[in-house]
Write a protein that binds this DNA or RNA. Sequence first.
DNA 1: ACTACATTTGCATCATTGTTGCAATTAAAA
DNA 2: TTTTAATTGCAACAATGATGCAAATGTAGT
Lengths: 133, 133
Amino acid sequence: MNAIDILNNHYLKRTSCREGIIEIMLNANKALSETEIRDALTGNYDRTTFYRSFKTLEEHKIIHKIVVDNLVVKYAIDKPAHQNKEHVHFCCNVCHTVQCVDTVNVLDIKLPDGYTPTEIEILIKGTCADCKK
Amino acid sequence: MNAIDILNNHYLKRTSCREGIIEIMLNANKALSETEIRDALTGNYDRTTFYRSFKTLEEHKIIHKIVVDNLVVKYAIDKPAHQNKEHVHFCCNVCHTVQCVDTVNVLDIKLPDGYTPTEIEILIKGTCADCKK
DNA sequence: ACTACATTTGCATCATTGTTGCAATTAAAA
DNA sequence: TTTTAATTGCAACAATGATGCAAATGTAGT
């Protein structure tokens, strides 16, 4: 599955910005910030274009956004393995790497009567294996 | 427990801004935004003062911050019932009210080897009881 | 390959949150 | 009351999010 296929499958125009973003994120093993993605891209794009590309890709569930701390936002590709699962993000306090974590299905939160959940966001902060050494 | 006692217990100076913030949040049954708190206060304070007050109160675990969406930040008082528990926040998609939810201990996430969690944030979005009617 | 049209981009502009430095003010201890 | 350390207000700035509009681009149909 490459960037062009993904865009075609979603009936999205194949612009170089979108292609580049998806390409980079397919090859990333961690969540990337806007700046990191921009630096990894060949072309130069306006911030607004970037912002709108992310928004479009997010709306089509091609990527997802992770807000680590306010004003610290990262993006990651939506992988099939993550579909229909509660999705956990891990942020290392030392290297600040953000990764999507596969978990065994684990969550059994009881909400008060009448409360209907539609979306669950779980962010775990701590120390990753590399930084623990 | 009133605002003055809380500040004294933490050896913090009793400034009117801090007192006011705590007073308002003690009487709130939901998380409040910076604007909501400012509007509820009698005095006028500079945004920086506000920001630093929140930061100080947060560092002393008197209040905590909830980032709902980026640039949508709310604050809630730390209640004894929430101490030492995984703390779940619920945000209603309709009325946008944010509340702290008491949960039975529920989380059993298995992280990869070498990963040490220090903090867990759980945000559930959905429809609250009032908006479901 | 060309044309027509809808989409996307770049630019300008602005709002909100977070952050720091520094002088003036204020709380609290001596 | 005086002294001192902490806090405030102001200015200035960074990052993210958002919108309007004209110019440029992709895409489908010919």
